[in-house]
Design a protein around this nucleic acid. Sequence first.
DNA 1: CTGAAAGCGCTTACAG
DNA 2: CTGAAAGCGCTTACAG
Lengths: 349, 349
Amino acid sequence: MPLHRSRRVTLTDVAQACGVSRATVSLVLRGSPLVHAETRARVEAEMLRQGYVYNRAAANLRQRVSSTVALVINDLSNPFFAEFAAGVDEALGERGYVTLLGCSNESAERERIVLGSLVQQHPAAIILSPAEDSTAAGVAAALGPRTPLLVFNRALGGTAPTGFQFDFLGLANRSGARLATEHLLARGHRRIVFFGGHADSSSCRERRLGYQDALAAAGIALDPAWMIESAPTRLDACARTAALFAAVPDATAAVCYNDAVALGLMLGLAHHGRRPGVDFALTGFDDIPEAAVSMPPLTTLCADPRERGRQAAQIVLAQVAPGGAVSHAPVIAPVRLVERESSCHADFR
Amino acid sequence: MPLHRSRRVTLTDVAQACGVSRATVSLVLRGSPLVHAETRARVEAEMLRQGYVYNRAAANLRQRVSSTVALVINDLSNPFFAEFAAGVDEALGERGYVTLLGCSNESAERERIVLGSLVQQHPAAIILSPAEDSTAAGVAAALGPRTPLLVFNRALGGTAPTGFQFDFLGLANRSGARLATEHLLARGHRRIVFFGGHADSSSCRERRLGYQDALAAAGIALDPAWMIESAPTRLDACARTAALFAAVPDATAAVCYNDAVALGLMLGLAHHGRRPGVDFALTGFDDIPEAAVSMPPLTTLCADPRERGRQAAQIVLAQVAPGGAVSHAPVIAPVRLVERESSCHADFR
DNA sequence: CTGAAAGCGCTTACAG
DNA sequence: CTGAAAGCGCTTACAG
């Protein structure tokens, strides 16, 4: 017979039905060896019979612990961040934590609201992939003083209020972009542009620096006109292709801000009668799934976002663990060049 | 001066510092008009000073309510489901709920574990986008009898245990596929295959039925060889292109299971020397962001996953509301044909 | 307008 | 091996 929907079964119900105390049921729940085997069996059978569901929130309250970690994502429709979120959730789940999700949709204002709501659940820690215009002061205000924070992927804007400490996990943007540029240089290219991204985002700045490192090491003077901005999306990158050739008519290659931009540029090249990987070489950044199956496949830097998510979870759980590390040294994850055809057929040596 | 990390500030701390009772602080918290304005101001200032953070979990326990909804997603790296998740989170946030996230990675076993963990947080409801091999019996066992459930997108396998009730939100798979097929028929195509998807998934079965409806209405006899299976991914679809032309050498068009399959087929067509949208027409399903910017742009059916997420949230919150609807009639969201070039240049009338 | 007391569902010393 | 009692941080009648 189905039970009434009205009231949930509690530990007290089970204890009464078995004729034991609540303490005993609690011990059964936690697998204590103190309980007599026969008693344990009776209690467990009764739990099953009544459809008892453990209330972890109540247990957490009593124990003054938390079994959740909050994850705030700037853009879940970007596969890079979706993979990151999946990795976080996977690693948290393995350690018995539940993920509280929040999406900021690249708005610092929504981010603030979402953080304010999540922090009331008293998560053990917060993992934040910040919106483009997010500031350290705004995050600090929304968070209050006590919740450990890990910032992923890009730096918070502004200067941090004194005493506001957090972990950071980022990608090797500079050395990655340098790798990509060196790869194109090694194939004989000399007029290589840096294409896409917003110059005021920290990741774009860092990638441009790596590009400049490689050019300088090759003895090539940088013309600032060789760095063309775009929104970090396929659509805008496609539209900005004309700006690229207006600025540098004889460019033969582009280091793109990321894969979305690179795929947009491929489309734009086609509209301009240029064949990517044949007439013009290009590289991306991220190695999103589409990179491997585009026409031609895209040479890019693999950032392994799912693994980064797992790493982020591990860092915050280490902070939370009793006697956990309290160093807040930034962690920079290396990236790996994946050579594909978009950069391979075009040889201008 | 920064406060000690050791102990969180509670309502009791604030009350003591102000020389009022905890009840009064609680009333301030909840914006009660009973509290004297001067008292309220003193209490609020003290909260700010001490960095008090409301503990919603404790309040929920006392009030016997829940402020969370669990969301279990089969594949977050698929933009369709990622958008759905973003929509769910957005709509829940607007209503003051927090999303508990879980990912099953298309494994019914992980789904069961994830559900078991989430249900212990006592969410107000659960929204489940099931793994391919998920069964009603498995979900029922993991859930216990009391948590309202909404299943999204595909039917649970097996037969539901008696008394196991849940809501369902799905797409108009059959009528959508019929629309796509009729669109190709109207452009003169006669040898139209149905390409991709696993025949044993409910959505593939339904889309095939819509395809067959259209062919039958046009007086075209269906050859079972015209339905070619593939994994619902770009990569496998690309690989199965050879099977398509082996089975139906003179096919001129394909209704594809979804956009990923259609984009894979485009790639496969290129390898076979066929130009999509010129030599061969095709349609997708979902309208993922890539569909609009592929070469050529893909004619497809728009399912608006973000809006579906919002809709799912609304349905479960209506169930949960006091005196909420208890009808569990399935909701089928319509889809809309978006005509683009992949089906437009190829005219075989 | 404010306070004392009980209770949400659990855990944890402490007795026995 | 089991039970009585106190307490986690909040809310809610009930007095005053």
